[in-house]
Nucleic acid binder design. Structure first.
Lengths: 124, 124
DNA sequence: TTGACAGTTGAGCAACTATGCAAGTAAAAT
DNA sequence: ATTTTACTTGCATAGTTGCTCAACTGTCAA
């Protein structure tokens, strides 16, 4: 089952065929960084809690802080990050700023992962 | 549509009902950390590239380094991390160590996110 | 206007991370 | 036995991140 490789199959690689197959569908550095950035936003317990809370209901800054048991400043810092990433949108109503999720993709990714973690927890 | 809240609806919260609804399904800190940990593994361009390559074919350390254009040491360091997280498994064959993905959940999460990023790239 | 409230922001810090380097181990070749 | 190949690992370090604190802006009430 020798496949004609698009890359010269010389001694540079241990398994030239595997390397060739990988090269065809490979992501470039910028795309890899884009994917990593999406995951990076979700890779913090505080942000996970924030997003999980906003999956249920929109909330203002201070209620988020109360529910999560962290400072309002810490919430605000994270919301800035999440807003920059276009993950949440903010709306001012009087003195309060209400946050809600904007992205439905993240919702799916997030729920899949939560399910995965909960299955793992039951398993081991 | 006043909902009977399980939490005392006093002046501690701006929107006691929303807070109560959030509290019911809330993740605790350890679960949030578990979820964050899964995402953290995927939140690095090098690891994204490694995982994407291993979605296609198993590879040894040096071929991974060649394909990704990074040092064998860098690959080895990351593989240690990925092995600790039970995301990849290693098998020694002679002098080479071959890596392959172990987790199918991650495969789905990863492919979903890649699709998401590519849709975003087309959109804007 | 004055004061209280809700949220934002910048500086600074402690903790973490990715990688290069160099020294190490393990297996095969000489 | 010695050398070469393939990979691992400890240490150092530059860079990043999440948070606290304090100072700030903007909104509403008296």
């Amino acid at each position: 089952m020798a496949v004609e490789s698009p890359v010269k199959p010389d001694a540079r690689y241990v398994d030239a065929e595997c390397v060739a197959a990988v090269r065809i569908t490979m992501v470039d550095r910028t795309e890899a960084t884009d994917v990593a950035d999406v995951f990076r936003v979700l890779a913090d317990p505080t942000r996970v809690s924030i997003i999980h809370a906003l999956l249920v209901s929109e909330l203002c800054n201070s209620d988020l802080a109360s529910v999560l048991g962290i400072s309002e400043s810490a919430v605000s810092h994270q919301m800035r990050e999440l807003r920059l990433m276009k993950l949440v949108s903010a709306e001012r109503r009087g003195r309060m700023v209400y946050y809600r999720l904007t992205d439905t993709h993240i919702r799916h990714i997030f729920e899949d992962t939560l399910r995965h973690v909960r299955e793992d927890a039951r398993g081991s």
